[in-house]
C-alpha cells in the first residue's frame, strides 16, 4: 500500500501566507509596541552609568532578599561589566523583561479565564503542551516572516515559549483556593469580581508568583535562540562563539547569562517569600 504523504507542511505555509497577507496591519502594530517596549527598557537601563544600575539592583536584592544576594549582585554585575558584556547584557535583559511582562499581562487573565471554565481549560492546556514541546526554533520561522528580523520576533518566540507556566499556575492557584473559602465569599454575596480580587488572587498569589518565576527563567533561556534571528544581546555572543568555535568568548557570555539568571530567579522568589510572611 502506498498512502501519499499528507501535505501538512504546504497547508501550514498556505496559512502563513494568508496571515501575512491579511493581518499585516496587526503585525505592524504588534511590532511597533514590542519594539518600543524593548527600546524603552534598553534606553532606561543604559541611560545612567552602569555603576548606578549595579548599585540599584544590589539595593533591591538587599531589600527583598538579603545582604548576601546584594553582594553577589554587585560582584556579578561588576564582572559582566569587566568582561565588556554590559551593553549586550542590558539588551538581553530588555528582551527578557519585555517578554516576561507580556507573558504575565497575557498569561494571568488567560489563567483566570481557564480557572473559571472547565471547557476553556480543556481547550487551552493541550495548546500549552504544544507550545512548550514544539522546538522553539520552529516558530522562529513564522515569527520572522510576520515580524522580520530583529528583537521583535525574538520577544514573540520567547512569549510563546515562556507563557505556559504563568497560565498553568494561575489556573492551578485559583482552582486550589479551598472550596469552603469560596463558599464563604459567595455566601456573603460577593460578585465574581469581588471574589477574584478579595479572595482568589490573594490566596493564589504564591502559586502565581512561582509561575511568573518560571516564565522569567524560560524567557531568559530564549536569548540565545532569539539571537539566531537577529536579536542583539549577550545571546548573540554565545551564538557567534558557537559558530566560530570560540570557547572562551562562549563561556564569558554564558557566565553573564548565568549571573542574570541567578539574580532574576532569587529576586522573584524573594518577592514571593516576602509576600507570604
Amino acid at each position: 500500500m502506498n498512502i501519499p504523504k499528507l501535505p501538512l507542511g504546504d497547508w501550514i505555509e498556505t496559512l502563513e501566507r494568508w496571515l501575512e497577507d491579511h493581518l499585516d496591519p496587526l503585525f505592524d502594530m504588534i511590532r511597533l509596541i514590542i519594539g518600543s517596549m524593548t527600546d524603552a527598557f534598553y534606553a532606561g537601563l543604559t541611560a545612567v552609568p552602569a555603576v548606578v544600575i549595579m548599585i540599584l539592583i544590589s539595593l533591591i536584592a538587599w531589600k527583598i532578599v538579603n545582604l548576601r544576594l546584594a553582594l553577589f549582585a554587585f560582584a556579578g554585575l561588576a564582572l559582566i561589566h569587566n568582561l565588556n558584556l554590559w551593553e549586550p547584557s542590558m539588551q538581553s535583559l530588555a528582551l527578557v523583561l519585555t517578554a516576561s511582562i507580556l507573558s504575565i499581562a497575557l498569561g494571568i487573565p488567560i489563567g483566570i479565564a481557564c480557572a473559571r471554565s472547565n471547557a476553556l481549560q480543556h481547550a487551552v492546556m493541550p495548546m500549552l503542551d504544544f507550545m512548550q514541546t514544539m522546538p522553539a526554533f520552529v516558530y522562529l520561522l513564522p515569527a520572522v516572516s510576520f515580524f522580520s528580523l530583529g528583537v521583535v520576533p525574538g520577544v514573540i518566540a520567547s512569549v510563546i515559549f515562556a507563557i505556559p507556566p504563568t497560565i498553568r499556575l494561575t489556573n492551578l492557584g485559583i482552582r486550589q483556593v479551598p472550596q469552603d473559602l469560596v463558599e464563604a465569599a459567595d455566601a456573603f454575596g460577593s460578585t465574581p469580581l469581588q471574589k477574584l480580587v478579595k479572595l482568589q488572587m490573594p490566596i493564589a498569589l504564591p502559586t502565581i508568583m512561582a509561575g511568573i518565576n518560571q516564565t522569567i527563567m524560560l524567557s531568559l533561556s530564549m536569548v540565545v535562540i532569539a539571537s539566531m534571528i537577529g536579536a542583539q544581546g549577550v545571546g548573540a555572543y554565545v551564538y557567534r562563539a558557537v559558530t566560530q568555535a570560540k570557547t572562551g568568548v562562549g563561556f564569558e557570555a554564558g557566565i553573564a547569562i548565568v549571573i542574570i539568571a541567578i539574580l532574576l530567579d532569587r529576586l522573584t522568589q524573594g518577592a514571593v517569600k516576602r509576600k507570604k510572611s
Binding site: 455566601a187 478579595k198 479572595l199
Partner: peptide
C-alpha cells in the same frame, strides 16, 4: 445574601490572608 442571610461554617472558612478585623468586615466590605 448581603442583607438578610449570613452563614457560619463548620471549618470556620476564615480568610487566611486577612486579619481578624478584616475577616469580620468582609460582608460589609462586599
Amino acid at each position: 445574601r448581603r442583607e438578610h442571610m449570613a452563614m457560619v461554617f463548620q471549618k470556620f472558612a476564615l480568610f487566611p490572608h486577612r486579619t481578624v478585623l478584616q475577616n469580620a468586615a468582609f460582608g460589609l466590605e462586599v
